[in-house]
Deep mutational scan, measured.
Amino acid sequence: MIVFVRFNSSHGFPVEVDSDTSIFQLKEVVAKRQGVPADQLRVIFAGKELRNDWTVQNCDLDQQSIVHIVQRPWRKGQEMNATGGDDPRNAAGGCEREPQSLTRVDLSSSVLPGDSVGLAVILHTDSRKDSPPAGSPAGRSIYNSFYVYCKGPCQRVQPGKLRVQCSTCRQATLTLTQGPSCWDDVLIPNRMSGECQSPHCPGTSAEFFFKCGAHPTSDKETSVALHLIATNSRNITCITCTDVRSPVLVFQCNSRHVICLDCFHLYCVTRLNDRQFVHDPQLGYSLPCVAGCPNSLIKELHHFRILGEEQYNRYQQYGAEECVLQMGGVLCPRPGCGAGLLPEPDQRKVTCEGGNGLGCGFAFCRECKEAYHEGECSAVFEASGTTTQAYRVDERAAEQARWEAASKETIKKTTKPCPRCHVPVEKNGGCMHMKCPQPQCRLEWCWNCGCEWNRVCMGDHWFDV
């Protein structure tokens, strides 16, 4: 396979590697080409510095992935760790964990309700045991953590790749202090920090972006993250068709209702045909949960890209028209025109101005929308079919299609509260000796007794199943 190397943020060049090629071997190839010592090179990928003893497969490097290699003399205490030698983080029983690669970060837990604080980093599902597709590297999971809308060759929703760059020099040479644990960490600028490894760059702020994971991409090709779309790892039924499908869209209502993408497309087109989208002054033209839940309008309007190009163009047109109407304007009634106009409040005669090729020149009556006339309008008909009709959803289907309910059931079956801080902690095999993952707590306690870890627990039921 081919990976592209950008040395000291210059133009990239291809390097041929195998899945079992080590990072140090990659350094040696680059060092020979650039005429520099291999031990002064640092390989940066997806916000993480890659260790010498890791392989291309370990690092989730795919065909035509772009890695950054910078030349920086080692500072005291760094060289041993980078070589894969006596790194205290690798000691058996050590409590410190390697910062998780962005290629394996899962933010789907952050669609849980606000009262489930902490689960994004504490609760991990076991539903990723799908067998890898044919042709994928051994052991590589097909679980997708992110979804994007690819405006490039795909023109559809695709699995996405999370990447990070330095907000100062805009190069992907920043190593994160810690990985993101929720969508806010990724979507809110300057929320996460790190250290830029580019020479002479003092940058410390992280800037995240997404790429389409279905095809090789260049540095400049980015895609918009659709953070309401998630892999259906909890096997929730769709609120409309009641099938279990994946991926799904999880509405931001209190129940976190789930809808499959085909039904979401149908829901949007139906509402669009009836012009029953909601115009929100802050958000724009949007839709609420299909069950009509309060405070559930979709905030990231790129989710409506699921409509496809033709329907999305209609959505944008109707949204612009609705904006004009909300501002007190009118639409030209001549067939084939429909231009938005903003006449004076007491102006009865409205002319669709033909300047700049935008208007048709038609003069019409503001009251009856017919060709302009003197005197009273002959008839004014009330528009028919403008009443909002509820999208029919079966109550039982709505009850079963809740992301929140599956989460709470998982928590109930696989977790116990920490005796000190009461945060839910998952036990997935292993011994009875637990350690609270909350940095402010870190209590060592017994899963069996529910009390602080002691010699009695150690001698009596340390390794009970």
Rank of each mutant, 00 (worst) to 15 (best):
R191E: 05
W445K: 00
D280P: 00
V30W: 04
R128H: 11
E16F: 06
A405F: 11
L301W: 05
A383M: 11
T175S: 14
V248M: 04
S131W: 10
D219V: 08
W403R: 03
W453K: 01
V29A: 12
Y149K: 02
L297W: 04
G292I: 02
F251R: 01
E28T: 08
M80H: 12
M80Y: 12
D60P: 05
N52P: 06
K220Q: 11
L187R: 08
G77I: 14
Q178G: 10
F364D: 03
P159I: 10
L162F: 02
T414I: 09
Q438K: 08
V15T: 02
D53W: 04
Q400Y: 11
C431I: 11
G93Y: 11
N428K: 15
E98G: 12
R271C: 10
H257W: 00
V56G: 01
T231H: 11
L297N: 06
C201G: 02
K413Y: 14
K27H: 02
G152V: 06
N232G: 01
C332V: 02
V258N: 02
V67A: 00
P88E: 12
Q440F: 15
E221P: 06
S109Y: 05
C253W: 01
I2Q: 13
D18R: 07
G152K: 12
E353S: 08
F209K: 14
P281K: 10
S141W: 06
Q440W: 08
C212R: 00
R170H: 15
G35A: 07
Q165I: 15
C360E: 03
H302E: 15
M434W: 00
D62F: 08
T231N: 14
L358Y: 14
V350E: 03
G114I: 08
S136W: 10
T217A: 13
M192V: 11
C253R: 00
A91W: 09
K369D: 05
T125K: 13
R104K: 13
G160P: 01
S127C: 08
C360H: 03
D39V: 03
C431R: 06
N90R: 11
D130N: 10
D126I: 05
A46L: 08
V324Y: 08
V248D: 00
Y372K: 03
V5R: 01
W183R: 00
A46Q: 15
E16I: 05
E452H: 15
P189W: 03
P419C: 03
T21E: 04
R256M: 08
E376M: 10
N448P: 04
